[in-house]
Computed example of a mutant assay.
Amino acid sequence: MTLSGKRVAKIKVKCDGNVFHQCWKDRPVQLPSLTPTTIQNCQTQEGEAGTVGCVLSWNYFHDGKERVAKSQIIDIDEEKKSITFNIFEGDLMELYKTIVVNVRVERDGSDNVVTWTAEYEKLNPDIPDPDTLMDFYRKATEDIAAHCL
């Protein structure tokens, strides 16, 4: 059984893709007001929001429990409306050696598609793949998109 893997979730949204991208890039501390059932708090710990190297701390609700995480923005591609986060501290690190999450917005006709990609390495073969984490990102995306209309 392999320890490394990748999970992808694609969600069609009616909201403006630029607005969705900007929320995650420039205003992550405002995300809890847009999706309070999934993200309770986000604070900038180091650097400036919207820049590579920025460290964010998160309080969120996942798998029926309150969780915490710290992530660093490791890449921003404005042309592709893409942001990549390296999660390096928190509850997920009890299961995964590494977990890198990318969120990207693309046009699909009159809709936009938000694609979440999680690349990970489990600590051992008994650890589940992060399917429920992808469900978390789907729910957060739907909530944020509803507010951005």
Rank of each mutant, 00 (worst) to 15 (best):
M1L: 11
T2I: 11
S4G: 07
K6Y: 06
R7E: 15
A9C: 10
K10A: 14
K12I: 03
K12G: 08
V13H: 00
V13T: 04
C15F: 05
N18A: 08
N18K: 04
V19E: 09
V19H: 02
V19D: 08
H21F: 15
Q22N: 13
Q22K: 13
C23S: 03
C23A: 12
W24P: 02
K25I: 15
D26T: 09
D26I: 07
P28Y: 07
P28M: 07
V29L: 08
S33T: 13
S33F: 06
L34I: 03
L34M: 09
T35P: 05
T35S: 12
T35R: 05
P36A: 10
P36H: 06
P36I: 10
T37C: 10
T38P: 00
T38Q: 00
Q40F: 07
Q40D: 14
N41W: 12
C42A: 13
Q43M: 14
T44L: 13
T44P: 14
T44K: 00
T44I: 13
E46M: 07
E46Q: 03
E48N: 03
E48G: 00
G50S: 04
T51H: 09
G53L: 02
C54E: 02
C54G: 04
S57P: 06
W58P: 04
W58C: 03
W58T: 03
Y60C: 04
Y60M: 08
Y60K: 00
Y60H: 05
F61V: 14
F61E: 09
H62M: 14
H62W: 15
G64V: 13
A69I: 15
K70R: 12
I74N: 07
I76A: 02
I76M: 01
D77P: 00
K80G: 02
K80C: 08
K80A: 14
K81A: 10
S82T: 05
S82E: 13
S82K: 09
I83K: 01
F88M: 03
E94N: 15
L95F: 08
L95V: 00
K97R: 15
T98N: 03
V101T: 09
N102K: 00
V103Y: 11
V105R: 00
E106K: 05
E106A: 12
E106M: 12
R107H: 08
G109L: 11
G109P: 13
N112P: 02
V114G: 01
V114P: 06
V114K: 00
T117I: 11
Y120A: 02
Y120P: 02
E121N: 06
E121T: 09
E121G: 00
L123P: 05
L123Q: 01
L123I: 04
N124R: 06
I127V: 07
P128Y: 08
P130E: 05
L133V: 12
M134A: 12
D135C: 05
D135I: 09
F136G: 05
Y137C: 10
Y137A: 03
R138G: 01
K139N: 03
A140F: 01
T141A: 08
E142R: 01
D143L: 09
D143V: 02
D143S: 04
I144M: 10
I144Q: 01
A146E: 14
C148S: 11
